[in-house]
């Protein structure tokens, strides 16, 4: 399986904390600093609370796949033929119901991707940055 290589555009500082987390080996998402509620994806305005402040907090590295797809033809701008196939996972952390984080399936050893499969987080090198990888949990 390949790894998608696409530059992280962080002109918008809203997302810097996610990549800082990956560099630190953590999966971090945004939470309301006052209430502690997860707010994901980080919006420009927290609904109903324009004064709310968000902060990046680690979220469970264990969770499951809401869904997946194995990309055969990348639709990313540019030429990405050498990077396919790879399997995108929409990951739901155990301690953040309803939150989904896009990443790729890694260390699958031929395990077929499936909805609700148990996964654990592992950062993956993707060019000059890291992306979220998710490996099947083996019991």
């Amino acid at each position: 399986m390949g790894i998608p290589i696409y530059p992280v555009h962080l002109e918008d500082p809203l997302f810097q904390g996610f990549y800082d987390g990956l560099d630190a080996g953590e999966l971090r998402i945004t939470a309301d600093a006052e209430t502690g509620e997860w707010v994901w994806y980080p919006p420009e305005v927290v609904p109903g609370r324009p004064d709310a402040v968000l902060e990046w907090r680690p979220v469970s590295a264990e969770g499951k796949a809401y869904s997946f797809t194995t990309v055969i033809r990348s639709l990313l701008p540019g030429d990405h033929k050498a990077e396919v196939p790879y399997t995108v996972i929409l990951f739901e952390p155990d301690d953040a119901p309803g939150v989904r984080i896009a990443g790729i399936l890694v260390d699958d050893d031929g395990v077929e991707p499936a909805c609700d499969m148990r996964l654990h987080f592992r950062p993956v090198e993707a060019g000059d940055h890291r992306i979220a990888g998710f490996a099947p949990v083996r019991r």
């Binding site: 998608p4 696409y6 530059p7 992280v8 555009h9 962080l10 918008d12 809203l14 997302f15 996610f18 994806y41 809401y66 869904s67 997946f68 797809t69 990309v71 990348s74 639709l75 990313l76 990405h80 990077e83 790879y86 995108v88 929409l90 984080i101 896009a102 990443g103 790729i104 499936a114 909805c115 609700d116 993707a126 940055h129 992306i131 979220a132």
Partner: peptide
């Protein structure tokens, strides 16, 4: 959100989005 959090993970383009819906629907 797509440029910052999805495209670097290779999740981009409507066929890709709807493919994840199809797999969840099948599930």
């Amino acid at each position: 959100q797509k440029a910052g959090l999805e495209m670097p993970a290779g999740f981009f383009g409507q066929p890709t989005y709807f493919a994840t819906m199809a797999n969840r629907y099948a599930h």
